[in-house]
Design a protein around this nucleic acid. Structure first.
Lengths: 336, 336
DNA sequence: CTGAAAGCGCTTACAG
DNA sequence: CTGAAAGCGCTTACAG
């Protein structure tokens, strides 16, 4: 492929008339090397299109400079929900690349707890970015107990101390609700994800806060919990219409739920947003294609990806646990 | 993390009372080693939860056992089109995993031609899976000229000899058109992707073939080309309605185009499928959520991913160039 | 069937 | 500021 025979630092050393040590140091920008030597060696390397051998470097430094991205997204039961996963990769890969780290895709079995060894003890990866949803708490516990370096997407479990990046769920719930109140809605349904998830609770808190600020008490008939998927959106919407048919707005905890809810509303004769306004959550790309285009809470997914990568690398360096929440904003389209 | 001090094959060798060579061979299932020795050593390794050092192995074998997945999908201008990219990862990662290969995400600048060296000469990856769309021919030429091992998604460029996996575009076009003819449509518009893309031409050939079989000549007013994105679907649909307002069906070259076209049709007062039937291409997950749910040509994306991985590994081993086309089928929903 | 030894291509104390 | 040497943890001719 590359016809030139200059493949190792020994070759460069020969060409430059110095030792391998000096070449290594020059290439790594060591302060030990004199400037003109450094410049000369680097020029020779560049002229010969020298590429360092990465496995050798990794073996010597006992550091893989790669991060494993852990997900079950592609395992089976593939769904649109994974759009979120896809979008977050954007920020992660670019940040890691800038820091000269590689990103490995790790598709693990949701019920296996041995997988971290496959990456850490083998020297394949230095740390993990945990995006998995199924059995997330199991994996968090496993990683914490084995003292594996990782960062997870989501609200931190208070029982453990580990790095996280999460959206600002309270403000997400508040913004969505305030917007609906602002356009005159008074009977706003809260269509929640799983009740035990902290992100869902925080969104509810934001919802309740906005309601009370506006002088309303939350009505239990207007609060239901389910899953983040479309099927759940369909089921919950039907239930809402049966138990609180006077609702005039829905705040759904995911875009998929919101889109499914809109279909039910339309099939049961409600106009959107005239009769019922709908707000979703996530701002996935598909929200522009929905019918009508969905007003939704944006999690600033790209920023989240950047934070995941940046904070994990920082943790790897300093060992200081860092938890951040990324601001959200409301994207107003036509559904509310 | 792992408290046991058994980290290297030297440790295992000591415990088993044999040499490192023997341990290495036993672990790699070499036929040189006696069965009982092999079993004994492997048991010791397992008991001590031994994990081999991957960078050392890679350095020694001069082989990275990793494949780089090349895409611009996450670079910028992120769009739903990348759903295709996401879905194809599923088949790729599972196949590579079974063959003990790792998958690296390589997000490269579409206009850079130096990136292959960053992966190959550094020993980071042994080959590439090319999913990029922007400047695809440039990258194919670069890889071919540097004799880099790779496989690309798409119809092979006849000027070069390299591995590919593609959908069966002719049959895709034929199936879609036959279905529309079968439900009584006579004025079927062909909404094409870029005219210079071979996949698009093959789809057109299938369209024309089906038309002629049914006794129709293609009408130039019913054929337009654009991009695979929604914007293009919008523009082309408007143009069709202006120049051939009697059309009763649309065969769009992507789901995104089809969904955009449906919106235009609806906004201009056509009922779907009653007035105009619409068929898309790709069978992305979002087609179930469209309004109405889209009838479309499925590319069997997961199978395609499996073929990409399997054939690249085979090429790496044998050096034999292999080009395959994956069968397509029609998924009938409500739009046609 | 097994072992001693060299080698893969780097990095980094150690000595000057 | 620079170099000789040891070491990272494997694999594999070579010799027995």
């Amino acid at each position: 492929m590359n016809k030139t025979q200059v493949q190792t630092i020994a070759d460069i050393a020969r060409l430059a008339g110095v030792s391998k040590s000096t070449v290594s140091r020059a290439l790594n920008d060591s302060p030990l090397i004199g400037d003109e030597t450094k410049v000369r060696i680097r020029q020779i390397a560049k002229d010969n299109n020298f590429q360092i051998n990465v496995p050798a470097r990794r073996l010597s430094m006992k550091k893989s400079s790669t991060i494993a991205f852990v997900t079950h997204a592609f395992h089976k039961d593939f769904s649109v929900a994974d759009l979120f996963t896809l979008e977050i990769l954007s920020g992660i890969t670019s940040t890691l690349y800038q820091n000269r780290y590689d990103l490995l895709m790790a598709n693990v079995d949701p019920f296996d707890t041995e997988w971290p060894y496959q990456y850490l003890s083998t020297g394949r990866a230095d740390g993990f970015i945990l995006m998995t949803s199924t059995r997330k708490q199991l994996h968090i516990r496993t990683l914490v107990e084995m003292e594996a370096p990782f960062i997870a997407w989501g609200v931190p479990n208070p029982k453990y101390n580990y790095c996280t990046v999460t959206g600002d769920n309270f403000n997400g719930g508040r913004l969505a609700t305030e917007h609906l109140l602002g356009i005159g809605r008074k009977r706003i349904a809260f269509m929640g994800g799983p009740a035990m998830e902290l992100e869902v609770q925080h969104r509810y808190d934001g919802y309740e806060h906005a309601l009370r600020e506006a002088g309303f008490d939350p009505d239990p008939h207007l609060v239901l919990y389910g899953e983040f998927c479309s099927e759940s959106g369909t089921a919950l919407m039907n239930q809402f219409l049966d138990q609180a048919s006077d609702l005039d707005a829905v705040f759904a905890n995911s875009d998929l739920m919101a889109i499914a809810a809109m279909k039910i509303l339309q099939s049961r004769g409600r106009r959107i947003p005239d009769d019922v306004a709908v707000v979703g959550y996530d701002n996935l790309s598909i929200t522009e294609e929905s019918h009508p285009p969905l007003t939704t809470v944006s999690q600033n997914i790209r920023t989240s990806g950047i934070m995941l990568a940046k904070n994990l690398l920082q943790y790897l360096e300093t060992g200081v646990v860092i938890n951040v929440s990324v601001p959200v904003d409301l994207v107003i389209r036509e559904s509310a």
